[in-house]
């Protein structure tokens, strides 16, 4: 804590300077909101916390990037042994920008990340009574709610975009003509980001809503997993039965299915599952995402406006 004193310096003496007031700037509400947003993003990845808190998020982040890394590894190997690189970067490759969502949800990475980390924010603050300290500061209740949710949404965005970015780096940098590869992949950027934002907002909003109402961590984890799997199972059964009006509408209860459709629409491809059989137009699914996002945010805001501290 203290630097060693030079040998000839006088023996130290402690001066009690007494209490000093603070006369510097007070940056107010906006700064507090930005700081809480950053804090939420960092807390979600366990930064500034114990090693134990880092385990789950980093484990899942590494898992999320693995498919991209494996495809790049394949790329390197095939190029070295003189194979056909276009086979791996082309439309037959299982891991592309437009299949990334299916790959990540197929491995349940996003929902597991939500279940493990969303309760770290709203749940932790409620469990330990920290809310009253936040609400007693420069923030308003809604500021707190939004900064927390958006910090978590940003963390999900990282989880979704990092594998895409690694894939992009590999495809471009390992190509024989880097410029051409860059120009070829550039048009994929808008749909990648658009789908990423939708995924992060919807998954983030829904899982934060569950954790806002279930301070107990174990219940929140179970609730979030249930929210992301049970509707998916129902939708899976419905779509496998073929199209019917009731069945089509039932697909709107599954966040995973909805985002599968927006993904297909954004990239201009048909999803690789049973979305072919569903008769509803794409716009319905975009509307469903919007309803989910706005609804979950509104429920959270209401929750923290009325919660007693």
């Amino acid at each position: 804590m203290t630097a060693p004193l030079p040998a000839d310096s006088p023996t130290g003496s402690i001066y009690d300077l007494g209490y000093r007031g603070y006369t510097g700037p007070r940056l107010g509400r906006g700064f507090a909101i930005r700081s809480l947003f950053t804090h939420s993003l960092r807390t979600t990845y366990g930064l500034g916390r114990t090693t134990r808190a880092k385990l789950a998020p980093w484990f899942l982040l590494v898992f999320a990037v693995l498919p991209s890394i494996s495809i790049i590894a394949a790329l390197v190997l095939v190029a070295r042994f003189g194979g056909q690189v276009s086979e791996i970067v082309g439309a037959n490759s299982p891991i592309r920008y437009d299949t990334m969502f299916s790959v990540l949800t197929g491995a349940a990475i996003i929902s597991l990340f939500c279940a493990a980390q969303a309760p770290e924010l709203f749940g932790r603050d409620q469990r330990h009574g920290i809310l009253s300290l936040y609400f007693a500061r420069a923030l308003r209740r809604t500021d707190y709610t939004l900064a927390r949710i958006l910090g978590f949404v940003a963390a999900l965005l990282v989880l979704y975009l990092l594998p895409q970015f690694v894939l992009f780096l590999g495809r471009v940098l390992l190509a024989t003509d880097v410029v051409a590869a860059f120009q070829h992949d550039l048009p994929s950027l808008p749909p990648v980001i658009a789908e990423g934002v939708l995924v992060a907002l919807l998954y983030g909003g829904l899982s934060m809503t569950v954790s806002a109402y279930t301070p107990r961590r174990a219940y929140a984890v179970a609730g979030i997993i249930a929210l992301f799997t049970i509707p998916g199972v129902i939708t899976g059964v419905v779509t496998s039965l073929g199209s019917s009006t009731v069945g089509d509408v039932l697909t709107l209860i599954s966040p995973g299915f909805i985002l599968e459709r927006t993904n297909a629409a954004l990239f201009g491809v048909q999803g690789n599952f049973d979305t072919l059989f569903v008769g509803l137009p794409d716009v319905v699914y975009f509307a469903a995402v919007l309803v989910g996002i706005v609804g979950s945010f509104a429920i959270c805001i209401r929750r923290f406006r009325t919660i007693s501290v």
Partner: peptide, 30 residues
């Protein structure tokens, strides 16, 4: 205004330094 609540309000897994400096930011201090 500084407020000291009656009930427990501190996260057990964080250090005093972390909690207090975080809350200082929440009060608008750089």
């Amino acid at each position: 205004v500084g407020y000291m609540p009656e009930h427990d309000c501190l996260p057990p897994d964080a250090s005093a330094t972390d909690v207090v400096s975080h809350l200082a930011l929440m009060s608008g201090l750089p």
